[in-house]
Amino acid sequence: MTGLPAAPAHLAVVRPGALTTVQDLGRAGQAHLGVPRSGAADRRSHAFANRLVGNPESAATLETTVVGCAVRTDADRWFAVAGAPCPVAAGGRAVPFGAPFLVRAGETVELGPVVAGVRSYLAVGGGIAVPEVLGSRATDLMSGLGPAPLAAGAVLPLGPAAAAPDATGAPPPGLARGPVLRVTPGPRSGFFPPAAWELLRAHAWTVLPASNRIGVRLDGPALPRTGGDALPSEGMVPGALQVPPNGLPVLFLADHPTTGGYPVIGCVHPADLPHAAQAAPGSALRFRIVPDRW
């Protein structure tokens, strides 16, 4: 794309879909001020989509939810879609999922409903260039930071398209059916009897429809607790399996609160979180307990 004049470029939102947000790698380092990290729920697919169009991982993409979205570009740009597989069209013609494609000024890119998973990532050469808030362009739905979810007619600025597309790297592993996520015990494993661990390990947990970017809500047998002692608020990590009084774990995703007062039985390995972010309501998640050492 070198040689083109660097005219300001934009995406116009034609169809916002159910919930489409701007996401990047989030705003780490500010949890002590009560600012959640946020960022792409499936960071691996976000990074892969960016790489396909020649962007750094930190560039902002669009994260869709289940039903896709449609945007029109006013400049020639490379696009790519990764994450939850879905039909993709540009200018009315079908284009490949998981590979870069060139879109001409005035054409509309359409992401259809996902065929599996929850969240697709649409990357554009140059990235979505909405202003940063506290060092990130990510929409944090819990704290209300970053741009509002996409609405019809909204216009998003694009950054300068620098690099060429790059389809040489290996794609990330596809979505697993019935994924088994690694869980390391703690920090509050001591609050739970062996029976709770056995249930956590043996049960196929159902993803509830109330799941969102804050956390995946799981249905299954209530996990028993050893003591009923209240726990003062403590810091939370992404992947934490927090167990509220009803015994049904909540698996924290990108927009999770910085602190919480329910005990965390174990934490899902960050490398397995993309599977949690792509687990559709009604699907099953299983856990494998692995040791942790430092």
Binding site: G186, R188, P238, D292
Partner: peptide
């Protein structure tokens, strides 16, 4: 000291 995932210490 308690483990809080492979990249956390509580």
């Amino acid at each position: 000291l308690l483990a809080a995932g492979p990249f956390g210490i509580l």
